[in-house]
């Protein structure tokens, strides 16, 4: 589904990603772990099309197309979804309006007919169940005054509504209590199909108790220094990141 080849990324002259190679096939869940500052969030933001980052080398092929040439909106329309680590509050724009505009733009892009108000609401009600969203959040301004848990839940709700092929969840577990984590992770699991894929960016193993990854990668200083299966995450939980750092090739 997506193939990241030797991706190198700078921001304000500082090299953050130094040659990322990663292939994700449909039906797979990949976890990207690593200590703070290793470049995990940068990778997530670059894939979603954040323009502040300068791509100095490498390419990203998504469903056969050069992803890096697409605008953020076209990436979303092509099926990429980023659940933000810090969801943005947008006063004055209601959750439901954002979603209606977004869903219809995506449908238009895919050559499907736009939903009318009733079709849209029927679909939305169904999707709200996925993350046990409260009705009242629908008409509120996007994320404004939401608790940390509500914001993360709202991200997954948006994901459910937009029905992406590749979802990138950036530290969706951070700041969640155990109940909220269970709901959010449950939502992601419900949305999982053999045709889509998930990249989980996380610092902790905790989330992986609920969303079981097929592959785990350790990102350190802008490189993937170790890849493995879910057992690797457990090992990281037990031993911390230091031993991986030690295995890291000299000069990294």
């Amino acid at each position: 589904m997506i193939e990241i080849k030797n991706l190198c990324v700078k921001i304000e002259g500082k090299e953050i990603l130094k040659g990322i190679n990663l292939t994700v096939n449909k039906g797979e869940v990949h976890a990207i772990m690593g200590p703070n500052g290793s470049g995990k969030s940068t990778l997530a933001q670059v894939l979603a099309g954040r323009s502040e980052y300068e791509i100095t080398k490498g390419e990203v092929i998504y469903e056969g197309i050069n992803l890096l040439e697409l605008s953020p909106e076209d990436r979303a329309r092509a099926g990429i979804f980023l659940a933000f680590q810090y969801p943005i509050e947008i006063p004055g724009v209601s959750n439901v309006n954002l979603l209606k505009t977004a869903v219809n733009e995506i449908r238009k892009y895919r050559g499907e007919e736009e939903y009318d108000a009733i079709e849209f609401l029927t679909m939305i009600k169904k999707k709200m169940g996925v993350v046990e969203m409260n009705d009242s959040l629908l008409n509120r301004s996007v994320n404004e005054g939401f608790s940390g848990g509500e914001k993360k839940r709202n991200e997954i709700f948006q994901m459910a509504a937009l029905d992406p092929k590749l979802a990138i969840l950036d530290e969706t577990d951070s700041g969640l209590d155990i109940d909220a984590l269970r709901v959010v992770a449950g939502g992601v699991n419900k949305l999982k199909t053999p045709d889509n894929a998930v990249i989980l960016v996380t610092h902790y193993q905790r989330l992986l108790d609920y969303i079981v990854p097929d592959f785990v990668h350790v990102l350190y200083k802008g490189r993937i220094v170790k890849s493995g299966t879910k057992e690797l995450a457990l090992e990281l939980e037990e031993r911390g990141y230091d031993w991986v750092k030690d295995e890291c090739p000299v000069g990294a």
Partner: peptide
């Protein structure tokens, strides 16, 4: 940040 957030949901610039 708000602009990027909206665009990342498929809404044009």
């Amino acid at each position: 940040d708000s602009l990027f957030y909206l665009r990342s949901r498929g809404i044009g610039a």
